[in-house]
Computed example of a mutant assay.
Amino acid sequence: MNLFSSTTVAQEPANLKELKVIRGVSSQQRTTHYFHQILAEALYLEGQGSAYKLTPVDFEFSQNRTLKLLNLDNVLDITYSMTSPAREKDFIAIKVPLLNGLYGKRRLLVLADNKLKFEQLSISQLKQLIACQGMHWPDYNRLDANGFSVYGVIDYEANFKMLGKGRCDYFPRGIAEIDLDFKKYNGVYGDLAKVDNIMFVYHAPIYFFVGQHQKKLANIVESGLLQMQDSGRLDQALEQSNAFPFDPNFEKNVRLKIVHLQ
């Protein structure tokens, strides 16, 4: 079932199909590997485990630019992303949620000196401050549409640079991302802290996407994922994975202010 196992050319079936997937940046390797293993299992359940070989390729592009590669032949065959109306129009979304809504729960990462101030803010006061966000991420438009001030950046690490420079006041991160980000970037562009009593919540499923010309592949992957969903395997895989660590007690905080974004 492991589609990443190395084999010699002589061992590979003559009709083996190569599926190009993103390798991902070093800080996201556990996340990327998780999605690829889910993809491999879905293909296996559809009897396609020996028909496809996943080949990671490097793309140092923004999220939106990487997605556009899906509509080109033999460049990028399938990837994962938070959905949006525009993305579902431009590409084929395989509409089986991969993370059970986990990315739709966001905590705030701030400079350490501002932690106490943030924990005393009302929601209306929070809207007067500036969030950092990837300019082409679906989150950017969602925050803007809900009345929050947003500073858009091009690449991922720039969010931390701009936070350190004071260009923005906070960076919303998924509850399963914030600890990893804190560990990697605390002290790099300034001392960071996690706000303990504010969480943004919104509908933000993560789907696999393929190009418009890949309808057959979309149907195969969708069928395998639906089997995993129906059997409880998708939930089990998420619970067993170490790719998305988060504090299960965070949402039990009686002081927690939940901000629902439409």
Score class of each variant (00 low, 15 high):
I130P: 00
K89F: 06
F91G: 07
F244S: 03
I154W: 13
N219W: 06
T83H: 06
G187Y: 12
Y52K: 02
L16I: 12
R167I: 04
G147T: 08
H203M: 06
N71A: 05
I198E: 00
R30Y: 15
L116K: 13
Q212S: 07
L3I: 09
K194T: 05
V195T: 04
D73K: 15
L121M: 12
Q229E: 06
Y52W: 10
C132F: 07
N253F: 06
F61Y: 15
L54H: 05
D247M: 05
M199P: 00
N100I: 12
Q63E: 02
D247A: 03
N100K: 15
S6C: 08
H33R: 13
E157N: 11
R23K: 14
N2Y: 08
G101W: 05
K115A: 12
G174N: 06
V153L: 13
G49L: 04
I175D: 02
F182H: 13
D139V: 03
G24T: 04
E119Q: 08
A176E: 04
N2P: 08
V201E: 07
E157P: 11
K105A: 09
G190L: 01
D196C: 08
Y34G: 02
K216V: 09
Q120G: 10
E251V: 14
Y140V: 10
F171S: 01
N186H: 15
Y52P: 07
Q262H: 12
R173K: 08
I94N: 02
F209T: 06
V153D: 07
L108I: 10
D191V: 10
Y189L: 03
L261H: 02
S149F: 14
F91I: 11
L72P: 00
F209A: 01
D113T: 14
P97D: 05
K127R: 12
K95A: 06
T79C: 03
G224E: 02
R107Y: 05
R106E: 02
K161T: 15
D155H: 15
L43D: 01
Y44T: 14
E119Y: 03
L143R: 02
K183S: 00
A51Q: 15
I220E: 00
G232R: 11
T55S: 09
